[in-house]
Amino acid sequence: MFLINCPYCGERDQQEFKAGGEAHIERPKQPTELSDDEWAEYLFMRKNIKGVQFERWNHAHGCRKWFNMVRDTSNDEIKAIYKMGEKPPTQ
């Protein structure tokens, strides 16, 4: 269990949040042009990194807004939090 600093509400218990998976997976610009391999890549393949990973979270039981998080999945340490649409921090 950890605390999450919602960019809109401040620090709250993790219980209020819902994880939304890997961040910055861009929706295909031309879906009709995509091959089956490219669809599989977009829909199913994930980095699933042990270490620093970029993810989306939702303050489901709070402001209900989405935001991004940089988190180390090997120890659950949160490195950075930034709003949707902002550029991810460079390490």
Binding site: K18, A19, N75, D76
Partner: peptide, 14 residues
């Protein structure tokens, strides 16, 4: 299961 990726072999209390 918890809903986030983690390799910590811990989980959330709730």
């Amino acid at each position: 299961t918890d809903d986030y990726v983690s390799y910590t072999q811990k989980g959330s209390h709730q």
